[in-house]
Design a protein around this nucleic acid. Structure first.
Lengths: 127, 127
DNA sequence: GCACTCCGCTTGCAGCTGCTAGCACCTCGC
DNA sequence: GCGAGGTGCTAGCAGCTGCAAGCGGAGTGC
């Protein structure tokens, strides 16, 4: 079942908007508060959250700052960056050139426990 | 000697434009050829290279595809992405799909403290 | 009741992005 | 000479981005 391109694009907009709304809800701040923290207008933030507008990378950067999350996370949702595959982080830790073996093991253990925590608490990880 | 903000912004535009022109020169293709490969108009690409316009992340993605380089490299030049200190591992953490934002931050902090520790124990880490 | 503060949203619009049509210039082959 | 193909750029403009002004609604205190 092929979606028309327009619909797919609108859905993409909703994806980043939904994600921002989610993160804002998690942070327990109002739309106006986030808009202020991020330095964007609150009507525009509202439109972004509802998928009516498609913000630039700069606006996403500002919103990420307001949410205290990485801009990368928002770029991924917006389709500007590709999401790494699940196994990639474990591999990256294992091959990190600037860590000792002990440190690598610690990071891997922390990562595994986080993933276990996410699988146990809710089947759909918060992302 | 403080530059006016307008000048600084114009320089930023020139940075990404210069970089694109450089990469195109390295690839030995004309402006029109790159524009065609990238799927953007050649006048617009010309304007971008000369720092007259500031392309969106999507256009940068297309140009990267045409140049056969990573979009990330262009985002960094454009100021959308920071070149993270940790490189690949930090990137992998930031974009990991199975972690919450809070968990990502924890891992990044742990990783950062490990790197600091390694820098302190040996002045020239193998990197 | 009123005024105030907060909430999220609508509307109109200035300025920007990215495009098309077309220009001037160059080289090559006839 | 000409035409064809290539080069990079100018100019005008449709549509989009992000904003300011303002709306209706909710809650609080007088």
């Amino acid at each position: 079942m092929d979606k028309p391109l327009d619909k797919a694009v609108a859905d993409l907009g909703r994806d980043i908007g939904e994600y921002i709304r989610q993160q804002r809800s998690t942070a327990k701040i109002s739309l106006r508060q986030l808009a202020k923290l991020a330095g964007v207008s609150n009507p525009y933030l509202s439109q972004i959250e509802r998928g009516l507008r498609k913000p630039s990378a700069e606006i996403l950067q500002q919103i990420a700052k307001g949410l205290r999350i990485s801009a990368e996370a928002l770029y991924v949702q917006a389709g500007f960056l590709e999401q790494r595959e699940g196994g990639a982080l474990a591999d990256a830790i294992a091959t990190a050139p600037d860590l000792t073996e002990r440190q690598k093991q610690v990071l891997l253990d922390v990562y595994e426990s986080f993933r276990r925590e996410n699988t146990a608490t809710q089947p759909k990880p918060e992302e």
